[in-house]
């Protein structure tokens, strides 16, 4: 009987401690969310909780709001972000954005546009604005049967492609230096050069890119090979041959 009483007492103590721990754990982390709700209005807390449930780091989110001078603007940026990677840029959660490189960004893109004498067509030139996205670039003609690939959330028939299938989102964000603000990496496309034809492109190493305006560290390293298809090459026929395929990850 005494043993049973002691066991019950110990069980009661254990449950009490667990209950107190649970309530302590619930109250403290919730305070910042409650304060945010008071500041920004009804629904704020549940929205932020939804983001955290979807994978946004709760500590980093709290930290970002704590140090933000304009919490409403931050909330709006997170709300209108196009992907979780884009949200992570706003809260500076660099550890959870694949492909980025720690260190200071140094621009390494080409300083001017490039022409190919043998094409003798200025419409096929690589403009300075596109050349800036290459560390090096050369004119190339893809032969019939060559497949090229594109990850995008928008235009299937844009200019930037790769000859290799990216293995991960990190390859796209880091290797081809695509900011999460620009692309939600939701769709994957392939284009195959038709029989009897070639495709005039620019091919080279992707230049580094800032991950966001004003951010020097970290940065997007580039270094992957990329292909740029001049605007005039991407005609109506080209567009019809761009096919959506399952994402490779």
């Amino acid at each position: 009987m005494k043993k049973k009483s002691v066991s019950l007492l110990l069980l009661w103590l254990l449950l009490s401690v667990s209950f107190i721990s649970c309530t302590d754990h619930d109250v403290e982390p919730q305070a910042w969310l409650n304060n945010l709700e008071t500041l920004l209005g009804q629904g704020t807390k549940s929205t932020v909780e939804g983001w955290i449930d979807a994978g946004l780091d709760d500590e980093k989110t709290k930290e970002a709001f704590d140090k933000s001078g304009d919490k409403a603007a931050l909330f709006n940026s997170l709300k209108t972000a196009i992907s979780i990677y884009d949200q992570r840029v706003y809260i500076e959660d660099w550890d959870h954005i694949p492909g980025i490189e720690k260190g200071n960004y140094v621009a390494n893109g080409l300083k001017s546009g490039v022409s190919n004498a043998s094409w003798a067509n200025p419409d096929l030139d690589l403009s300075a604005s596109d050349a800036a996205n290459f560390a090096d670039a050369k004119a190339d003609e893809l032969s019939a049967g060559t497949k090229i690939y594109r990850v995008t959330g928008g235009n299937p028939a844009g200019g930037y492609w790769t000859a290799q299938i990216p293995a991960s989102v990190g390859d796209v964000i880091g290797g081809t230096a695509v900011r999460p603000a620009w692309n939600n990496f939701s769709k994957f496309y392939v284009y195959e050069v038709p029989a009897g034809q070639t495709l005039k492109v620019w091919r080279g190493t992707t230049a580094a890119q800032q991950i966001a305006d004003g951010v020097i560290n970290p940065f997007l390293p580039g270094k992957a090979e990329q292909i740029f298809i001049p605007f005039v090459v991407r005609d109506a026929t080209f567009k019809t041959l761009v096919k959506e395929i399952p994402l490779p990850w």
Binding site: A107, A132, N133, G154, N155, A157, G158, Y160, N183
Partner: peptide
């Protein structure tokens, strides 16, 4: 200078996502 260049470089690169 460089900030203006990077901003417009970004405009160009982002434009590629739109048809």
């Amino acid at each position: 200078g460089n900030q203006a260049k990077e901003a417009i470089r970004g405009i160009n690169r982002y434009s590629d996502e739109f048809a």
